[in-house]
Amino acid sequence: MPTPEIVIYSTQVCPYCVAAKNFLKSKGLEWREVRIDLDPVEREKMVAKAKRTSVPQIFVGETHVGGYDDMMALHRAGKFEPLLQA
């Protein structure tokens, strides 16, 4: 079964975006980055999906993980990796 797509909504100057990507890279994962600073339409889509305006906003498949801190809290609780098996 294929791994659900990981999507990160980010901007160029966002330390938490970099931290999130470094974490995913350390797990050997791939993701699709959507730069909302370059595309206002994508920003609107992100806000509609995530109900938040901050970056990063991370999705695993259809599941909204949240920002970097949210992802790390899920990881520490052992609940991030199971999302990848969905």
Rank of each mutant, 00 (worst) to 15 (best):
residue 58 I to D: 05
residue 17 C to H: 06
residue 56 P to W: 04
residue 26 S to N: 12
residue 85 Q to I: 10
residue 63 T to G: 06
residue 72 M to A: 05
residue 81 E to C: 08
residue 27 K to Y: 04
residue 10 S to V: 01
residue 86 A to I: 00
residue 45 K to E: 12
residue 60 V to A: 07
residue 4 P to W: 09
residue 41 V to F: 10
residue 39 D to F: 01
residue 42 E to D: 11
residue 81 E to P: 07
residue 68 Y to L: 06
residue 41 V to E: 14
residue 64 H to C: 14
residue 71 M to E: 08
residue 16 Y to T: 06
residue 82 P to A: 07
residue 32 R to F: 03
residue 77 A to E: 15
residue 9 Y to P: 01
residue 68 Y to V: 03
residue 85 Q to S: 13
residue 85 Q to T: 14
residue 81 E to L: 15
residue 23 F to L: 10
residue 50 A to E: 05
residue 5 E to R: 14
residue 12 Q to K: 15
residue 67 G to N: 03
residue 43 R to M: 11
residue 82 P to H: 01
residue 4 P to A: 15
residue 46 M to C: 03
residue 80 F to Q: 05
residue 45 K to T: 11
residue 5 E to I: 05
residue 21 K to M: 08
residue 29 L to K: 14
residue 9 Y to C: 03
residue 58 I to T: 02
residue 66 G to P: 06
residue 85 Q to H: 12
residue 22 N to F: 02
residue 62 E to R: 09
residue 2 P to Y: 11
residue 14 C to K: 04
residue 50 A to T: 00
residue 31 W to F: 14
residue 32 R to E: 09
residue 79 K to E: 14
residue 30 E to Y: 03
residue 47 V to K: 08
residue 12 Q to R: 13
residue 74 L to H: 00
residue 51 K to S: 12
residue 48 A to S: 15
residue 17 C to V: 03
residue 17 C to Q: 00
residue 1 M to T: 13
residue 14 C to T: 00
residue 1 M to E: 12
residue 33 E to M: 00
residue 34 V to T: 02
residue 6 I to V: 11
residue 6 I to F: 04
residue 64 H to S: 11
residue 64 H to G: 09
residue 63 T to Q: 10
residue 30 E to C: 09
residue 44 E to H: 10
residue 60 V to P: 06
residue 11 T to L: 02
residue 11 T to A: 05
residue 3 T to S: 15
residue 3 T to H: 11
residue 31 W to N: 01
residue 12 Q to Y: 14
residue 21 K to E: 02
residue 44 E to P: 00
residue 62 E to Y: 04
residue 17 C to Y: 01
residue 56 P to L: 08
residue 69 D to Q: 11
residue 28 G to F: 03
residue 84 L to Q: 09
residue 35 R to Y: 06
residue 71 M to Q: 00
residue 26 S to A: 14
residue 81 E to Y: 13
residue 8 I to M: 07
residue 62 E to C: 05
residue 24 L to V: 07
residue 13 V to S: 14
residue 60 V to M: 06
residue 38 L to M: 13
residue 5 E to H: 10
residue 59 F to Q: 04
residue 32 R to K: 15
residue 57 Q to Y: 01
residue 17 C to M: 07
residue 82 P to C: 01
residue 32 R to M: 07
residue 13 V to P: 06
residue 24 L to P: 02
residue 10 S to K: 03
residue 20 A to P: 01
residue 42 E to W: 10
